[in-house]
């Protein structure tokens, strides 16, 4: 297990290092003079020089990279040019919207997907299975931002059950906060749930073919008991893998969905930063997103090894 952990840690570190270098190169080296890009074509040379100085752009590239990456882990990311506040503060405030949204969506999709996938597997080949497979096929094809627009039309504009957009903030209580995140989370969850339900179905079907399932049935367990006690546990391994892979789609989806609902999260922040050429903000938000994705997949890998001892032995 130690060996497995070490190799996984080494590859986590290598991926993060490479990713940070790519981001740094794209946003600091390729554009040439970052200060000039940020201020636009008509900027006065003195203003550009002042910004260069403020951003520390005259330092060698290696120094700038090291400053940025140590700042990333200590919370000092410099000051946003357009917002005039520390980037770390900006990100922290937005994180309180984006992170709960992602977790809410993930929870919703799991709660929807696993029962549906199990029912489809237990009714394989029958009408219930065909119906579920048809609906999930459709769910995969629906763009989440389009679905979101109609959720707003029906549940916010016509029924007035949920706000059409914006975020009330957590200081008005958990319920109000969750209310503003429900439609966005639902929009995000549909595609994820469809994919996860299909994976749950096929993974369960595969385990239902195993000898130990026949043994469990032979010793008198009912079909439902067998599925819940034996098949589900083993079917969770592929479902867990998909969960890790889906996280990056969930994050990307959240960026778009936040724009549909005007939620003040990281997604809105990054688009505002792009339109205002605030490369300092773009750089750190992108790094944070990539960091989150790599970290989640790392955790999933570890969880995977904890569930399946064969993996530890192989590494």
């Amino acid at each position: 297990m130690t060996r497995y952990l070490l190799t996984r840690f080494a590859s986590l570190f290598a991926t993060l290092l490479a990713a940070s270098l790519v981001i740094f190169a794209l946003l600091e080296v390729v554009p040439g003079d970052v200060a000039a890009v940020m201020l636009g074509l008509n900027a006065a040379p003195e203003a550009v020089a002042a910004l260069r100085d403020q951003l520390g752009l005259d330092a060698p590239l290696v120094t700038r990279y090291v400053t940025w990456i140590t700042g990333f882990f200590t919370g000092d990311l410099g000051t946003s040019y357009t917002y005039r506040v520390p980037v770390a503060e900006l990100i922290a405030a937005r994180l309180w919207v984006s992170l709960p949204l992602a977790i809410y969506a993930l929870a919703l999709s799991t709660v929807i997907a696993i029962p549906i996938g199990l029912i489809a597997a237990m009714r394989a080949g029958r009408p219930a299975d065909s119906a579920i497979m048809g609906v999930t096929q459709l769910g995969i094809a629906v763009p989440n931002f389009w679905f979101a627009m109609f959720l707003v039309l029906i549940f916010a504009i016509q029924l007035r059950w949920f706000p059409a957009g914006g975020f009330s903030g957590w200081d008005k209580g958990l319920w109000e906060g969750l209310r503003s995140l429900t439609l966005p989370a639902l929009a995000l969850a549909v595609q994820q749930a469809s994919i996860m339900a299909r994976v749950t179905r096929s993974a369960t079907l595969e385990t239902l073919d195993q000898d130990y399932i026949r043994t469990a049935r032979a010793k008198g367990l009912s079909r439902t008991q067998t599925v819940l006690r034996h098949a589900l546990r083993n079917a969770m391994i592929p479902v867990l893998t998909i969960l890790g892979l889906q996280f990056s789609f969930l994050l990307a989806g959240a960026i778009i969905i936040e724009n549909v609902f005007y939620l003040p999260g990281l997604g809105r922040l990054i688009f505002q930063a792009i339109t205002q050429n605030d490369l300092i903000v773009v750089k750190s938000v992108v790094m944070l997103l990539v960091f989150a994705i790599v970290l989640v997949n790392f955790v999933v890998d570890l969880a995977y090894a904890a569930v399946d001892p064969r993996l530890r032995a192989r590494a």
Partner: peptide, 13 residues
């Protein structure tokens, strides 16, 4: 580790 949207954001920036 880079979702397509994030790649697009980087390129667009």
């Amino acid at each position: 580790a880079f979702p397509s949207l994030v790649i697009a954001i980087l390129i667009t920036a």
